[in-house]
């Protein structure tokens, strides 16, 4: 069954009096359990595409179905709930909450969901940190971690809610290649073990060898 369906999606950003067409009619279907990479040069529209799929932004034209639901019919509150319950995000610049410890960062989305007692939430967060081998740094603040460690915490945070879809925008761009490889292997392992759908963007050909499906994009159009 398809998790995401894009039908003739366009996205324009207003820019002064004109507008920038970041996507110009993109159509595709992403199945559950995919481990997919979006590649393309800088400015090709990778982030834009991920934003739309993550319900962080709305398309200018076309239809976007996430888990069978037309997102243009949802208001901000529902979209936020949809992101909280169904989607996990991994950002290029990690975006951990600096004032919270590693453990608290991973607990955060669960606390927002009010999913269970505090002790249960804590256990789930710890388990997740064990999966990414960060349980020894639970009490650290993000600023005390290396880039690779931060990204592993970010992965734990994205996965702790057991989302159907994880979106990662250039997750390895701020990491050296060795750490980047480790992060991608981790994502790959979690995809295989837990069946979570992963979509990640990159412009690093090195990274592509991990992907099962590859979508190429240039100037806002898919290249097949």
């Amino acid at each position: 069954m398809s998790l995401i369906e894009l039908k003739d999606i366009s996205k324009e950003y207003p820019l002064g009096n004109t507008s920038v067409r970041a996507l110009r009619g993109v159509s595709m279907v992403i199945e559950k359990g995919a481990f997919m990479s979006i590649v393309g040069p800088s400015g090709s529209g990778k982030t834009t595409l991920l934003n739309l799929m993550g319900c962080v932004d709305q398309p200018t034209a076309g239809t976007l179905l996430v888990d069978g639901q037309d997102v243009s019919k949802l208001n901000d509150k529902d979209l936020t709930r949809l992101r909280l319950y169904k989607i996990g995000f991994i950002f290029q610049s990690f975006n951990l909450i600096p004032v919270l410890s590693v453990l608290e960062n991973v607990e955060f989305p669960l606390l927002l969901m009010h999913s269970g007692k505090p002790s249960e939430i804590r256990e789930r967060a710890k388990t997740m940190l064990r999966h990414v081998q960060m349980e020894s740094h639970m009490q650290h603040r993000p600023s005390e971690l290396s880039g690779g460690q931060r990204q592993r915490v970010a992965i734990a945070r994205a996965l702790v809610t057991q989302p159907q879809l994880v979106l990662a925008d250039e997750p390895t761009a701020n990491l050296d290649s060795e750490t980047g490889n480790a992060i991608l292997s981790l994502m790959q392992r979690l995809n295989e073990e837990q069946g979570t759908t992963f979509i990640f963007s990159t412009h690093d050909p090195e990274v592509l060898k991990y992907a099962r499906n590859i979508v190429k994009i240039r100037d806002g159009l898919l290249i097949t």
Binding site: L84, N95, P98
Partner: peptide
């Protein structure tokens, strides 16, 4: 800005 955006993406309401 980026931190707030990230929290919004994760699922915190306006």
């Amino acid at each position: 800005v980026q931190e707030i955006g990230a929290m919004r993406a994760i699922g915190i309401q306006r």
